[in-house]
Amino acid sequence: HFTSQQLQELEATFQRNRYPDMSTREEIAVWTNLTEARVRVWFKNRRAKWR
């Protein structure tokens, strides 16, 4: 589960860029205190939901 702060950060990034690269995902991981893998999976799932 994600905190509302984490989701806000993830959503804001998603609005700007639906396909963040590795370095962007790592930055998000640092800001949100999540692993890069969790961030990558979140984006994958979010893109699926967005379609």
Rank of each mutant, 00 (worst) to 15 (best):
H1I: 11
H1G: 12
H1L: 09
F2G: 02
T3K: 04
T3E: 04
T3I: 04
T3Y: 05
T3C: 07
S4C: 14
S4T: 12
S4M: 11
Q5A: 12
Q5T: 11
Q6F: 08
Q6M: 06
Q6W: 05
L7C: 08
L7R: 07
L7M: 08
E9W: 15
E9I: 15
E9S: 12
E9H: 13
L10D: 00
L10W: 04
L10T: 00
L10H: 01
L10R: 00
L10E: 00
E11G: 01
E11D: 03
A12I: 11
A12N: 10
T13M: 15
T13F: 15
T13C: 12
T13A: 15
F14A: 01
F14V: 03
F14H: 04
F14Y: 06
Q15T: 09
Q15M: 11
Q15I: 09
R16Y: 09
R16G: 07
R16D: 07
N17H: 06
N17E: 06
N17L: 07
N17S: 06
R18Y: 06
R18V: 05
R18K: 15
R18I: 06
Y19D: 04
Y19Q: 05
Y19L: 03
Y19T: 05
Y19E: 03
Y19K: 04
P20H: 05
P20E: 03
P20C: 05
D21T: 08
D21W: 04
D21N: 10
M22S: 08
M22W: 11
M22E: 08
M22P: 06
S23D: 07
S23Q: 14
S23K: 15
T24N: 06
T24W: 06
T24P: 01
T24G: 05
T24E: 13
R25L: 10
R25S: 02
R25H: 02
R25A: 03
R25Y: 07
R25E: 03
E26R: 13
E26I: 14
E26C: 11
E27R: 13
E27S: 10
E27I: 11
E27A: 12
E27Y: 11
E27L: 15
I28Q: 01
I28D: 00
I28N: 01
A29W: 03
A29E: 00
A29S: 06
V30L: 14
V30M: 13
V30F: 13
V30H: 11
V30T: 12
W31T: 15
W31R: 15
W31G: 09
W31S: 15
T32Y: 07
T32Q: 06
T32M: 13
T32G: 03
N33W: 05
L34E: 01
L34F: 02
L34D: 03
L34M: 09
L34C: 05
T35K: 03
T35S: 10
E36K: 03
E36I: 04
E36Q: 05
E36S: 06
A37R: 11
A37M: 14
A37C: 08
A37E: 14
A37S: 11
R38L: 15
R38N: 11
R38G: 09
R38D: 14
R38K: 15
R38S: 13
V39S: 00
V39T: 00
V39D: 02
V39Q: 00
V39L: 02
V39W: 03
R40A: 08
R40E: 07
R40C: 06
V41E: 15
V41C: 09
V41I: 13
V41N: 13
V41T: 12
V41W: 13
W42F: 04
W42V: 00
F43S: 00
F43G: 00
F43N: 00
K44N: 07
K44D: 06
K44M: 10
K44P: 00
K44W: 09
K44T: 09
K44A: 11
N45D: 11
N45H: 13
N45F: 13
N45I: 14
N45M: 14
N45E: 14
R46L: 01
R46T: 05
R47Q: 07
R47V: 06
R47P: 00
R47M: 04
R47Y: 06
A48W: 08
A48I: 11
K49S: 10
K49Y: 09
K49L: 12
W50F: 09
W50V: 07
W50A: 08
W50L: 10
W50G: 06
W50S: 07
W50I: 08
W50C: 09
R51F: 14
R51G: 09
R51W: 14
